[in-house]
């Protein structure tokens, strides 16, 4: 879908991106992660030509992005940023309808699309349609920001630290939202963050950048089990690598089916980190597991967490 080949970008003699080669597959959720100044935002902005690359080539859908008009390529990509950048003088409906308007969709279709998106992001259309951004909370504003980015059904969704300014609870809710949208639509998403937990939670593939170069890329678990160097180890956090590993797996894959145990059960959709927390808090080494309907499924044993081999 998007292909970087030996791409360079300099700002005032400082290399922001240095011979970067990267392929982002269609439908993949890619998270670019790195410290500030690592070139992750620059890389993202080169995709929709808010930043023009100096050398190498970037292909979108097989064609060099400079062969498109900048406006055209941007209208095919959704773009959400940390500070959201909603138009303060436009209502929620006008904000979300901005790109469809640019694409000259008929009015009726825009209205329907706005309602659909507001519902997708759990905002009541009748309640929010006519509101102005300053009447919304930070979390609601970012939901509108994401809805706006999705409005014209873009081929790619680019997100630049979209949840960075939100409180932990709101951020977690929106992360679940965006993961759901990715599952539903199978859209290609490129997200920039400096939060390793966010990356581990959302990504199909993580790309860790430093000084404009890729240090490691691969599925989330590989960063924990097989860090390329000390920098990666520092980034994922040396002291709690084990905890983070547990957070990538869910109880359903580890429980022993057919066994029975009484006591307060846990859900099969919990991740192992939450299960560990339950073991420690309740001072037990086995927990009954149920599904969302309360149906008993089996028992999770503490020892199986250590073996980290899914039960057959």
């Amino acid at each position: 879908m998007i292909e970087f080949h030996q791409v360079c970008k300099q700002f005032d003699h400082r290399k922001a991106v240095d011979h970067l080669t990267l392929t982002i597959a269609e439908g993949e959720f890619t998270v670019l992660i790195g410290a500030s100044g690592s070139g992750k935002s620059t890389t993202l902005k080169m995709i929709n030509r808010l930043v023009e690359h100096d050398a190498g080539y970037i292909r979108f859908a097989g064609e060099e992005i400079r062969s498109f008009k900048a406006e055209d390529i941007r209208r095919r990509m959704g773009y959400a940023i940390q500070s959201i950048g909603l138009f303060p003088h436009w209502t929620v409906e006008q904000n979300i309808g901005a790109v469809p308007q640019l694409l000259k969709w008929p009015r009726k279709r825009i209205r329907a699309r706005v309602a659909e998106l507001l519902e997708l992001l759990h905002l009541d259309p009748e309640h929010f349609r006519r509101r102005y951004p300053h009447q919304l909370s930070g979390g609601q504003q970012q939901r509108v920001g994401v809805a706006r980015a999705l409005a014209a059904d873009p081929e790619v969704l680019l997100m630049d630290e979209p949840f960075g300014a939100l409180d932990p609870v709101t951020r977690a809710a929106l992360q679940i939202e965006i993961a759901r949208i990715h599952q539903l639509s199978g859209r290609t998403i490129v997200l920039v963050t400096h939060d390793i937990d966010e990356a581990l939670r959302l990504a199909d593939r993580i790309v860790l950048l430093d000084h404009g170069q890729i240090i490691q890329q691969g599925p989330p678990a590989s960063f924990l089990t097989d860090p390329a160097n000390d920098l990666v180890r520092d980034f994922v956090g040396r002291s709690d690598i084990g905890i983070k590993l547990l957070s990538l797996e869910i109880v359903a894959h580890y429980l022993r089916r057919g066994e029975h145990l009484t006591g307060q059960p846990i859900l099969d959709s919990f991740n192992l980190r939450e299960a560990l927390s339950a073991f420690v808090a309740r001072r037990v080494d086995a927990l009954p597991v149920v599904d969302v309907h309360g149906q008993a499924l089996g028992v999770l044993h503490f020892a199986d967490l250590l073996s980290r081999k899914p039960a057959a």
Partner: peptide
């Protein structure tokens, strides 16, 4: 005018004159 608003406008594919006129 907040720079984020202008960046969002450019990012969604407004031309320079559209950004000036509408934002």
């Amino acid at each position: 005018v907040p720079p984020a608003v202008v960046e969002a406008a450019l990012g969604m594919g407004m031309t320079g004159s559209q950004v000036f006129l509408h934002v």
